[in-house]
Design a protein around this nucleic acid. Structure first.
Length: 424
RNA sequence: AGAGAGAUGGCAGAGUGGUCGAUUGCGUCGGUCUUGAAAACCGAAGACUGUAACAGGUCCAGGGGUUCGAAUCCCUUUCUCUCUGCCA
């Protein structure tokens, strides 16, 4: 959430930023929010003044009662009656104004960082880095949805039987490969200074709001109605919300956490022919890195996180490219995002396997996440996160890129984890 | 799930209708003393909002109510603890 005073003081910058996202009616909306905000403050001041008067009167009534001046006290009581009516009226008015303001305010996405290019969608993303050449497979090469059947390692039909489409069952070496990847990612993160967290995978409304999934993405999360809990779409939600309503000492920044969790996404309306096999699922595994950072360091940290994720892909010997998302393709809460895409040679497609973002203060404002500097002053912290990595597409590209006539070769770095070097 | 008790500042813990934003202890920070430290003593210190700055306002788990006035009384939600039941 953008702070209203930022909106007030940097109106043009905000409008310009939202235009980069091709956010419809940016200018009108921001101006309207500001107008309502002004109204809100006027009502607030009016109410404050009446409250001040009431407080004074109440105090004096107490004083009079104590001194036994009952009649005068009764007289004073009568004068409060008018004030009370006014207070009620103003409170209702203020509440309405606040609600209107909130509804509009909460719909404003984050302002992109200055380096982010304007753009409508995926076609406008900048390619920051890409391989000089792409792997080529023989004509007989199979996409992963055929390979998993051939070697009987991932079973979609069984998943459909017990849950539904998009809930695969991993079997034998398929399950072991998953487990190996998870352990590998967690070990690497630990080496890089991240602290491992195992969070709950159901979260409440407050948490959903804190990281910005609610109200923006309500409907994309599974919801356990009886208990009003959401299944997490990413570990970002519980791990970042660990720091909701927290004031961190400046010297403790940055805070680096990593967590492995299953992730659940309804993916309502986003299904199609191009999302076969492991390309899009309702449930998948992901290791997520999360940092709470000092505002002056957050972009440096974003670069570090991006490099870290690239390092993982290099260790897995997967061809990848790095994109900087344009305004229109970024998530609602992000100020700048790098996407890492792996080339899956049998599908001849780039698959997004990681998204690393700096949210600046957008989440922290919602979370009330602050840090205290040496002068004991509180400031809003910056939050960042990134997938490191999302499993299914990594599995898909390992299967496809490493296939041979004798079987699928396991990347060298993973063999100590899988304890086998080929799937056959 | 049932019965009871409770939720107050970083923590512990007072406060049961009127200068209470809140006694006190611990912890924290500053000072005196000391070569330095400890101890002792003195002092400071919540968050949010608002203003050019003051002022003012809000906050004692969340929401609602009673009252001129609520941390304090009533209703409600959530959570915690104890006992009973059930269960990985």
């Amino acid at each position: 959430m953008l702070l209203l005073n930022v909106l007030r003081e940097q109106t043009d910058k905000v409008i310009e930023g939202l235009k980069k996202r091709h956010f419809p009616n940016a200018e009108i909306l921001v101006k309207e929010v500001l107008a309502i905000d002004l109204r809100r403050r006027e009502s607030q001041v009016e109410l404050d003044n009446i409250n001040a008067e009431m407080n004074k009167l109440s105090k004096s009534i107490g004083e009079l009662m104590k001194n036994g001046k009952k009649e005068e006290a009764e007289k004073a009581k009568k004068t409060t009656l008018d004030l009370k009516i006014k207070t009620k009226e103003l409170e209702i008015k203020l509440k309405n104004t606040e609600e209107t303001l909130y509804e509009m305010h909460v719909k404003l996405p984050n302002v992109p960082f200055e380096d982010v290019k304007a753009g409508k969608g995926a076609e406008d993303n900048e390619i920051i880095k890409e391989p000089t050449s792409l792997p080529e497979l023989p004509e007989s090469a199979l996409p992963h949805w055929d390979l998993i059947k051939q070697y009987d390692i991932i079973d979609f039909d069984l998943g459909i039987k017990i849950a539904g489409a998009g809930f695969p069952v991993y079997k034998g070496k398929g399950a072991k490969l998953q487990r190996a990847l998870i352990n590998f990612f967690l070990d690497e993160a630990e080496k890089a200074g991240y602290k491992e967290i195992q969070p709950p995978i159901l979260i409440n409304k407050e948490s959903g709001f804190g990281t910005g999934q609610l109200p923006d993405k309500d409907g994309q999360m599974y919801f356990a109605n009886e208990d009003e809990l959401y299944l997490i779409p990413t570990a970002e939600v519980p791990i970042t919300n660990l720091y909701r309503d927290v004031i961190i000492e400046e010297k403790d920044l940055p805070i680096k956490n990593v967590g492995y969790t299953p992730c659940f996404r309804r993916e309502a309306g986003s299904w199609g022919a191009h999302v076969r096999g492991l390309n899009r699922l309702h449930q998948f595994d992901k290791v997520e890195i999360v940092q709470i950072a000092h505002p002056s360091k957050s972009y440096q940290i974003l670069e570090e996180m991006s490099k870290y994720v690239q390092g993982l892909l290099e260790k897995l010997e997967l061809p990848y490219r790095v994109l900087r998302l344009c305004g229109g393709d970024m998530g609602f809460t992000s100020a700048m995002t790098y996407d890492m895409e792996v080339y899956s040679a049998a599908q001849k497609r780039w698959l997004e396997v990681s998204s690393v973002s700096n949210f600046e203060t957008f989440q922290a404002n919602r979370l009330q996440l602050r840090y205290r500097d040496a002068d004991k002053k509180n400031h809003t912290a910056h939050t960042l996160n990134g997938s490191a990595l999302a499993l299914p597409r990594i599995v898909a590209s390992i299967l496809e890129n490493n296939q041979t006539n004798e079987g699928i070769n396991i990347p060298k770095i993973l063999i100590p984890y899988t304890k086998f070097d080929v799937i056959n």
